[in-house]
Amino acid sequence: MTVPDSHPEKRAFPLPDTAVPRLRRGVRLSFDPTRDSYVLLYPEGVLLPNETAAAVLGRCDGGADVATIVASLARDFDGVDAAQVSDLLRRLERRRLVEIVERPDGTVRDDG
Protein backbone atom coordinates (compact mmCIF):
# COMPACT_ATOMS: atom_id res chain seq x y z
CA MET A 1 0.00 0.00 0.00
CA THR A 2 1.18 3.50 -0.71
CA VAL A 3 -0.68 5.99 1.38
CA PRO A 4 -1.55 9.23 -0.40
CA ASP A 5 0.68 11.87 1.07
CA SER A 6 -1.18 15.12 0.90
CA HIS A 7 -4.57 16.55 1.60
CA PRO A 8 -6.27 17.30 -1.70
CA GLU A 9 -8.57 19.87 -0.14
CA LYS A 10 -5.62 21.92 1.03
CA ARG A 11 -4.17 22.12 -2.45
CA ALA A 12 -7.28 22.44 -4.58
CA PHE A 13 -7.28 26.22 -5.11
CA PRO A 14 -5.66 27.46 -8.33
CA LEU A 15 -2.05 28.56 -8.33
CA PRO A 16 -1.51 32.30 -8.28
CA ASP A 17 0.21 33.78 -11.35
CA THR A 18 3.24 34.64 -9.27
CA ALA A 19 3.86 31.11 -7.99
CA VAL A 20 7.13 29.64 -9.24
CA PRO A 21 7.04 25.88 -9.86
CA ARG A 22 10.08 23.68 -10.21
CA LEU A 23 10.76 19.97 -10.43
CA ARG A 24 11.36 18.54 -6.99
CA ARG A 25 14.78 17.37 -5.97
CA GLY A 26 15.36 13.99 -7.59
CA VAL A 27 12.91 14.53 -10.45
CA ARG A 28 14.24 14.79 -13.99
CA LEU A 29 12.59 15.39 -17.38
CA SER A 30 14.26 13.79 -20.36
CA PHE A 31 13.54 12.39 -23.79
CA ASP A 32 13.54 8.66 -24.49
CA PRO A 33 14.37 7.82 -28.09
CA THR A 34 13.31 4.18 -27.52
CA ARG A 35 9.75 5.23 -26.77
CA ASP A 36 9.88 8.44 -28.81
CA SER A 37 8.42 10.24 -25.82
CA TYR A 38 9.30 12.61 -23.05
CA VAL A 39 9.78 10.84 -19.75
CA LEU A 40 9.67 12.12 -16.21
CA LEU A 41 12.08 10.20 -14.02
CA TYR A 42 11.77 10.18 -10.24
CA PRO A 43 12.84 7.93 -7.37
CA GLU A 44 9.90 5.53 -7.46
CA GLY A 45 9.19 5.35 -11.14
CA VAL A 46 8.78 6.74 -14.60
CA LEU A 47 5.94 8.80 -16.03
CA LEU A 48 5.27 9.37 -19.71
CA PRO A 49 3.85 12.91 -19.89
CA ASN A 50 1.82 13.85 -22.95
CA GLU A 51 3.07 16.66 -25.18
CA THR A 52 1.27 19.40 -23.25
CA ALA A 53 2.44 18.19 -19.86
CA ALA A 54 6.00 17.84 -21.17
CA ALA A 55 5.86 21.41 -22.50
CA VAL A 56 4.75 22.67 -19.09
CA LEU A 57 7.32 20.58 -17.21
CA GLY A 58 10.08 21.76 -19.52
CA ARG A 59 9.31 25.32 -18.48
CA CYS A 60 9.37 24.66 -14.74
CA ASP A 61 12.91 25.90 -14.24
CA GLY A 62 12.49 27.35 -10.77
CA GLY A 63 12.75 30.88 -12.21
CA ALA A 64 9.64 31.36 -14.33
CA ASP A 65 6.36 32.04 -12.55
CA VAL A 66 3.03 30.64 -13.72
CA ALA A 67 2.17 33.77 -15.75
CA THR A 68 5.47 33.56 -17.61
CA ILE A 69 5.02 29.83 -18.26
CA VAL A 70 1.52 30.37 -19.64
CA ALA A 71 2.74 33.21 -21.88
CA SER A 72 5.60 31.09 -23.16
CA LEU A 73 3.26 28.17 -23.89
CA ALA A 74 0.88 30.51 -25.74
CA ARG A 75 3.70 31.46 -28.11
CA ASP A 76 4.23 27.80 -29.08
CA PHE A 77 0.75 26.30 -28.85
CA ASP A 78 -2.81 27.28 -29.75
CA GLY A 79 -5.58 27.42 -27.19
CA VAL A 80 -3.48 27.46 -24.01
CA ASP A 81 -5.76 27.66 -21.00
CA ALA A 82 -4.23 29.15 -17.85
CA ALA A 83 -6.67 27.25 -15.62
CA GLN A 84 -5.63 23.95 -17.16
CA VAL A 85 -1.96 24.74 -16.69
CA SER A 86 -2.60 25.59 -13.06
CA ASP A 87 -4.61 22.42 -12.61
CA LEU A 88 -1.87 20.28 -14.14
CA LEU A 89 0.76 21.86 -11.87
CA ARG A 90 -1.44 21.25 -8.85
CA ARG A 91 -1.73 17.57 -9.76
CA LEU A 92 2.02 17.29 -10.25
CA GLU A 93 2.54 19.02 -6.93
CA ARG A 94 0.23 16.52 -5.25
CA ARG A 95 2.22 13.68 -6.73
CA ARG A 96 5.35 15.29 -5.31
CA LEU A 97 6.91 15.75 -8.73
CA VAL A 98 6.71 19.54 -8.76
CA GLU A 99 7.10 21.97 -5.88
CA ILE A 100 6.22 25.63 -5.60
CA VAL A 101 9.29 27.62 -4.69
CA GLU A 102 7.97 31.10 -4.20
CA ARG A 103 4.72 31.75 -2.48
CA PRO A 104 2.49 34.57 -3.76
CA ASP A 105 3.17 36.67 -0.66
CA GLY A 106 6.81 36.71 -1.64
CA THR A 107 8.05 34.26 1.01
CA VAL A 108 10.52 31.71 -0.18
CA ARG A 109 9.89 28.19 0.91
CA ASP A 110 12.46 26.75 3.20
CA ASP A 111 13.16 23.29 1.92
CA GLY A 112 16.27 22.59 3.92
Partner: peptide, 19 residues
Protein backbone atom coordinates in the same frame (compact mmCIF):
# COMPACT_ATOMS: atom_id res chain seq x y z
CA UNK B 1 0.82 4.84 14.33
CA UNK B 2 1.52 4.79 10.59
CA UNK B 3 -1.81 6.38 9.64
CA UNK B 4 -1.18 9.09 12.14
CA UNK B 5 2.32 9.75 10.88
CA UNK B 6 1.17 9.86 7.25
CA UNK B 7 -1.33 12.56 8.18
CA UNK B 8 1.03 14.54 10.37
CA UNK B 9 3.95 14.52 7.94
CA UNK B 10 1.97 15.14 4.74
CA UNK B 11 3.95 17.40 2.45
CA UNK B 12 7.16 16.90 4.44
CA UNK B 13 8.03 13.22 4.41
CA UNK B 14 6.17 10.76 2.26
CA UNK B 15 5.52 7.43 3.93
CA UNK B 16 4.79 4.21 2.13
CA UNK B 17 3.75 1.18 4.10
CA UNK B 18 3.98 -2.39 2.89
CA UNK B 19 1.58 -4.74 4.66
Amino acid sequence: VVRDAVERLAGRMEISYVY
